[in-house]
Computed example of a mutant assay.
Amino acid sequence: MNKAKDIVLIGGSAGSYTLIVQILEALPQRFDAAIAIVIHRNPRFTTKIEETLSIKLRRSVIQPRDKTAIAPNIIYFAGPGYHLLVEPDWTFSVDVSERIHFSRPSIDVLFDTAAEVYQDRCTAFLLSGANQDGADGIRRVREMGGKAIIQSPDDALIATMPTYAIQANAESDVYDDQQIISFFRKLT
């Protein structure tokens, strides 16, 4: 299996799911990047996000396990209760270490580890949410040469996460929802 040379990350919490679905619906049929998504979800509740989206989108939407190769044209969702990490050999690993900003999976963990491996071939989007998770990860993506984009607080259903990230990362780009969707529509 070919490994993805580029990775696009999406981090969101409360209020982000609808926009994430719109993003995924806008994707071209084929793209060369891998997409990795962290949504804060409670492991005590069973969700069928991956299964539902696979059917709706007619494409691979999976929850990676340890040593899952990061492949192009695949959408990966962090499993509830597990941090999702990118390893130097371009595979995922999962981990149950402590919560970050009360969250596991943590957006910061995925963004930090992906930035280390993919560097300038990493693009990260931080969306709606009610805590500070993702702000440090956005900074790390930028420090490693990647592109960091924060959803406009005016468009976010819950503006806490994007507002905090903008305050902590003044150099990051801020996109409204239509700009975010347009980015994914043009993904190659």
Results as ranks from 00 to 15, higher is better:
88 P>K: 13
48 K>S: 13
90 W>H: 15
180 I>A: 07
111 F>A: 09
188 T>A: 01
65 R>Y: 09
53 L>C: 13
67 K>D: 10
43 P>K: 09
107 I>W: 03
94 V>N: 09
174 V>C: 05
176 D>M: 05
110 L>M: 09
150 I>E: 10
167 Q>M: 11
78 A>Q: 05
130 A>K: 10
47 T>P: 01
1 M>D: 09
108 D>Q: 12
47 T>R: 00
90 W>D: 08
139 R>A: 14
163 T>N: 14
79 G>C: 07
179 Q>D: 10
170 A>E: 13
170 A>R: 12
73 N>Y: 05
135 A>C: 05
60 S>T: 11
162 P>Y: 08
109 V>N: 06
22 Q>I: 01
50 E>N: 13
23 I>Y: 08
17 Y>G: 08
32 D>W: 04
20 I>C: 12
138 I>R: 08
118 Y>H: 10
125 F>V: 11
14 A>T: 13
3 K>W: 01
166 I>E: 02
171 E>Q: 14
60 S>Q: 12
125 F>N: 06
58 R>G: 14
46 T>K: 07
169 N>S: 05
154 D>H: 06
42 N>P: 00
39 I>F: 04
140 R>T: 14
29 Q>T: 11
77 F>G: 06
127 L>S: 08
108 D>G: 02
181 I>P: 03
95 D>M: 11
46 T>I: 11
63 Q>M: 15
9 L>F: 06
37 I>W: 00
8 V>C: 04
99 R>N: 10
47 T>V: 12
16 S>L: 06
159 A>P: 04
73 N>Q: 00
103 S>M: 05
43 P>L: 11
107 I>Q: 00
20 I>Q: 13
72 P>M: 11
70 I>G: 01
160 T>N: 07
127 L>I: 03
116 E>R: 11
16 S>A: 15
27 L>Y: 09
55 I>T: 14
132 Q>D: 13
124 A>M: 10
143 E>F: 04
73 N>R: 00
4 A>Q: 06
115 A>N: 00
173 D>S: 15
86 V>E: 10
59 R>V: 05
119 Q>R: 15
1 M>P: 02
103 S>K: 06
122 C>P: 06
49 I>W: 03
173 D>I: 14
67 K>P: 02
24 L>V: 08
18 T>H: 13
90 W>T: 09
94 V>D: 02
36 A>G: 09
83 H>M: 10
147 K>T: 14
155 D>F: 00
124 A>H: 09
3 K>D: 06
152 S>A: 13
48 K>M: 15
155 D>S: 01
109 V>L: 07
142 R>G: 12
120 D>K: 15
28 P>Q: 00
